[in-house]
Design a protein around this nucleic acid. Structure first.
Length: 126
RNA sequence: GCGGAUGGCUGGAUGGCCGCGGCAGCAAUGUCGAGGAAAGUCCGGACUCCACAAAGCACGGUGCCGGGUAACGCCCGGCGGGGGUAACCCUAGGGAUAGCGCCACAGAGAUGAAAACUACCUGUGUCCGCACAGGAAAAGGUGAAACGGUGGGGUAAGAGCCCACCGCGGACGUGGCAACACGGACGGCACGGCAAGCCCCACCGGGAGCAAUGCCAAAUAGGGACCGCGUGUCACCUUCGGGUGGCGGGGAUGCUUGACCCCCAGCAGGUCCGGGUUGGCAGCUAGAGGUGCGUUGGUAACAGCGCAUCCAGAUGAAUGGUCAUCUCAGGCGGCUUUGCCGCCUAGACAGAAUCCGGCUUACAGGCUAUCCGCGCAA
């Protein structure tokens, strides 16, 4: 099992991770870089100076994902993936938005989701 | 044992590692954290704001009877009707002499009855084929329904014309709180169905909803346009400023009438446009509370009392992610074959959003109680 448990200790590299709550932030992120994977979509944006500190992340699961149970489950898995991957791989000063997809976000093996996010981050950071 | 009927319960378990929200705490930490339907948003309430004398009309809902409840369209018990061998199930089930409307097709005729054709009887005529007049409403044919049915008497032929039984209506009596049930003098039989077509009757109902509502902060404007009312009148008092009363006008959130009340030079009210915020706090979770046990009343729903116990409050929205083991169901394989082991797959419906009581709908699998029919055994 690769991505599961042996993460580096979240000390030096790890800035605080905040949750996006404002609709405006989501809209701004949607106009920036994006990258699709099998399990989800990633949107990422480097904030202007002085906007906020740390890494910020938001999650979106529309009605297309399914009923309330399916949406919640997809969102929770995305949250778990973000918590695993972002501390080592995310960049300070960026906003990330993870968008769930119908069926696959809830059913794909967890290690694959982790690998997907790592790859997608590398892509948008270019 | 097989088949069936009606309820009730459950809705995977345990443990690592990593997390989230509320509360308490300086902190460490502690503690609590989705459902039987949280769902659909279909009823009923609590709560909040607005409106509110009252009456009438309109509109909407409910609709056998009795009870339960904060209330209900819910629940319990009973009655009528229908289905089933039975357990049991289904049932919008007030009024058709208040009125209107409808009853297709077929049929002569579809609702106060009227009776055409074939057929029946009598009379007259007759070219012996039948025609005309009258009687009758039994038989035939249509239809879901044709104004009682069967048998007998009776008659020219017939007919409730008469009689018996059945059906129908039914004064009255008995039982029941009632719906209703049972009996039934009498009536020769008239009085069809549809009210889930309008309607009538009885009862109930003000409107909008937690994005209700209240407070705070910030920011911008410190606005523009339009509408509506309008400088009443009389009497009395007066310190001459004004005050009181009557008349008149205006004001009622479905409409009309309208008691009381309020207003009638205030610089206020209403509508629209433009601009800003789309933040925080309260409401916000303990209430007609749930559950269990006991007890009292009641057939029951339920109510009273006692004890114990439990009680999420998020707001881009917490209550989880992942791994393992076990459990349960199915499949495959193996073996030491009433069983055991291994591997694989599957574990439903579904996520609180102010809170309660219901209803409806969805649901893998499992457990359980009572009852009925058949078969076998005794």
């Amino acid at each position: 099992m690769v991505g599961t448990m042996d993460r580096p200790p979240a000390v030096s590299v790890c800035p605080t991770i905040a949750i996006l709550k404002k609709r405006a932030d989501f809209l701004r992120a949607a106009r920036a870089k994006r990258s699709g994977t099998t399990g989800f979509h990633l949107q990422a944006r480097e904030r202007a100076a002085g906007e906020a500190d740390g890494i910020r992340v938001g999650f979106t699961c529309s009605k297309k994902v399914g009923n309330a149970v399916a949406r919640n489950r997809a969102k929770r898995r995305l949250r778990a993936v973000a918590r695993t991957v972002l501390p080592p791989h995310g960049r300070d000063g960026w906003d990330y938005v993870l968008i769930g997809r119908a069926d696959v976000t809830a059913t794909l093996p967890f290690p694959q989701l982790v690998a997907d996010l790592e790859r997608a981050l590398a892509k948008v950071h270019q």
